[in-house]
């Protein structure tokens, strides 16, 4: 028995089992804090001076925020890239794809008159919109999740977007997937033009909602 205890103690020391017990004690005495959001400071003046289209992207699931600048325009979609290659692709105001913000969204396809893509004014949105989300899975074919969203126009208000005040109209989308799961998107549209200044959009079952604040709008003619 003594031999067994000595051997087990030796192996425990080598294996990290004692470390496990220590971690158990630490976890009981000092529970790990919830994920905290790290929001980077936005230097608006520098962005404006460089004449860059830029967005602030917040991923609550992994607690990361990033400032991305437009680096490519491909098929009418603007690709924004941030530190550590975190990125978001916007089609109008629709979050088309994400990278490095959790489990990634590969693509979203939608109907031709999707008001998020055309950036229609709040009152001009169709009653409902159907979108399909593409998520990586086993094999070469992405998993597809199709959701239908109905919208409600909410308050008119002023919001602060990266140190700039924007007059916006709130639009809430209540969405249901074909499997019966529900999620909400919230958009803050420019009161005059309908362009998106802030949006919180569902991007998949694991990554859930991503918030995008538009610091400087992309201007294809600039």
């Amino acid at each position: 028995m003594i031999k067994g205890v000595v051997c087990a103690g030796l192996i425990a020391s080598l294996s990290g089992c004692i470390g496990t017990l220590g971690q158990m004690r630490d976890a009981i005495l000092n529970p790990e804090p919830e994920v905290e959001m790290q929001v980077p400071r936005v230097n608006r003046a520098a962005i404006e001076e460089a004449d860059l289209a830029a967005v602030l992207v917040l991923s609550p699931t992994i607690g990361l925020g990033s400032v991305g600048v437009a680096i490519q325009l491909r098929d009418g979609r603007v690709i924004y890239n941030a530190n550590d290659n975190r990125g978001v692709t916007l089609e109008g105001g629709l979050v088309y794809a994400t990278l490095g913000l959790g489990t990634n969204l590969q693509a979203v396809t939608t109907q031709s008159n999707d008001p998020l893509v055309t950036e229609a004014r709040a009152g001009a949105w169709p009653a409902e919109v159907t979108r399909t989300y593409y998520i990586a899975q086993r094999g070469t074919e992405f998993a597809r999740i199709t959701a239908t969203c109905r919208n409600q126009v909410g308050r008119s208000l002023a919001i602060d977007v990266a140190e700039a005040t924007r007059q916006v109209v709130e639009v809430v989308e209540i969405c249901t997937t074909q499997a019966g799961e529900n999620f909400n998107n919230i958009h803050y549209l420019d009161a005059g033009t309908g362009r998106v200044w802030r949006t919180s959009q569902w991007t998949g079952p694991e990554q859930t909602n991503i918030q995008v604040d538009v610091i400087e709008q992309f201007d294809p003619d600039a």
């Binding site: 992994i62 990361l64 680096i71 490519q72 491909r74 690709i79 890239n81 550590d84 290659n85 975190r86 990125g87 990278l99 490095g100 913000l101 959790g102 489990t103 990634n104 899975q137 694991e206």
Partner: peptide, 17 residues
Amino acid sequence: QALVQENVGRGPYPYVP
């Protein structure tokens, strides 16, 4: 269950056509 990517807070380099 899906294997959670190592370092989910980092993305790949952008592809340049």
